[in-house]
Write a protein that binds this DNA or RNA. Structure first.
Lengths: 283, 283
DNA sequence: ACATAGCGGTGCAATAATTATCCATGTTTG
DNA sequence: CAAACATGGATAATTATTGCACCGCTATGT
């Protein structure tokens, strides 16, 4: 029988399409991935990928086993979660995935309170741009800004996150025509100012915020960010757009793990306390 | 994430109950199994087994993941079979599991014909006493003497295998009282001679046959074996017992593999040719 | 047309895993 | 009750695996 662990490499290559990409995902070198992939193919007696010059493409045999390999992966992830769920200590690591801007604005100022309450729990902040996979336990808790929380995950709505239109404080006096627009990649074409030309599209809220603050244009920002930023004001006459919601999500399998529950409770608490600020209703 | 291959060790230990037994199954040393098991437990953050002095017993955590681990194992076996199913050569290995006595009596005399027909196909005979697992591909084809073929497997009935009562040729003249009985472990208490005392119970047909031939007692044998044995005759006045059937079985996933199909066809053929002999209807 | 960046494969040195062996302990057996 | 057996763990020698550097190749952009 083949080495079961090689199925993980097979999946990584099938997803990334390249041996080097898979190696990066798995924290290995491409040499190792290449060798073990060949070894797997030899053991199975079948070639799993067509090696084109640019990328690895699944052969028919590879497509055949792909679905089963994914089921196996889900099973392995389940084993991981079930073992994790038995950890009853109020100690250890909690991996929290959320936007860095949201973390900085809402969570970070009160983190000391959490640390005082649970000194043995360590928080790891994950701010990758892609959505961390709860099933694979890439993160324990994901705070996501979304309209449609997935019902496979378990969690609670923390707050609304309306968008408002911001400009640098001196901007309006200098450029009454409002012709320069800073857009968010996440918010395609939600542009209340009719005639403005988009001069920048950023996928980072922080970058967009900084550009707006520096007077390079106007644009939408979540209230929790814009209202907290020095040198930036809301555009008068434009009401906030009720838009996204902020959800804290975790996998059902780990909901009873004490440290996860503590971290969740803490999130509920601090978002509740800062609701007025987040939802921008003070203005 | 833990090494997926370690789940295989976990399953082997949970089945055998000992690290050494698992190591034997997996063709490893007990040191390797022990070390990797500890490594898995450390990665999962849970202890999987209670180490008693005699055997490893699953902890609650171990029981929790056992079922999922078995699903994962089934998936891996499926991947193995699906890859195997793509081998379109009329060459390679066919692993055949059957009783050695049946093989010697029926298959072996005609094996030359198969080899002449398919010179590149190699037959491996597996005569373990436990039933080879088709799903795990411990054997490709299992010939089983049974009353109830499992419907999860695919195959065909090759023949009936009635039992008849045999004695050494001089036996009846010497010992008209028929008081010594040679029994088969597989056939508990199927004893047509009323007053005989069981003097030997053998799990090997060959052993039982040899004892009967050597005049140590009388007993039941499948006709294919007894009728072929020099120096042994059926007891007069006792009709053969229609009893078991001989089935050739394979896993549905590999039914279209050419060399498996060839081997199956060969089995059908030679059992058909020797039906009279196997079913003992010539007497 | 040329340079560049990214790709997968290969040889070699370093590292990690596996084996073989010994040991202590507890259990079964005569 | 002693002795033989089997178990899991620990340690040194061997073996296998990995990472690194380099290679030739292709696609792409200047």
């Amino acid at each position: 029988m083949f080495d079961w662990d090689d199925i993980r490499l097979f999946l990584a290559v099938s997803r990334t399409g390249t041996v080097r990409g898979a190696a990066k995902q798995l924290s290995l070198t491409h040499a190792t991935v290449s060798r073990r992939l060949h070894q797997l193919e030899e053991k199975l007696g079948t070639t799993l990928f067509d090696r084109t010059s640019t990328r690895h493409i699944l052969t028919e045999a590879g497509q055949n086993i792909l679905e089963t390999a994914q089921e196996v992966e889900a099973g392995m992830a389940r084993i991981d979660r079930m073992a994790f769920a038995r950890d009853s200590r109020l100690a250890g690591l909690v991996r929290l995935s959320m936007l860095d801007s949201l973390y900085l604005a809402i969570v970070q100022p009160f983190l000391g309170r959490f640390q005082a309450r649970h000194p043995m729990i360590e928080i790891e902040l994950i701010t990758t741009d892609y959505l961390s996979n709860l099933a694979q336990r890439e993160a324990d808790i994901v705070v996501r800004i979304t309209k449609t929380p997935p019902d496979s995950a378990l969690g609670r709505k923390l707050a609304d996150s309306p968008l408002a239109c911001y400009a640098a404080e001196g901007y309006l006096a200098d450029r009454p025509k409002l012709d320069r627009w800073i857009a968010l990649t996440h918010e395609p074409a939600r542009q209340p100012i009719l005639s403005a030309r988009t001069v920048l599209t950023a996928n980072s809220l922080i970058i967009a915020r900084d550009h707006i603050r520096d007077g390079l244009g106007i644009g939408l920002l979540p209230c929790f960010l814009g209202d907290q930023t020095e040198g930036v004001t809301r555009m008068p006459g434009i009401d906030p757009i009720p838009d996204m919601e902020i959800w804290a999500l975790m996998h059902p399998d780990i909901k009873n793990v004490p440290r996860i529950r503590s971290a969740m409770d803490f999130l509920y608490e601090i978002f509740d306390e800062q609701r007025v600020l987040i939802e921008g209703s003070a203005y």
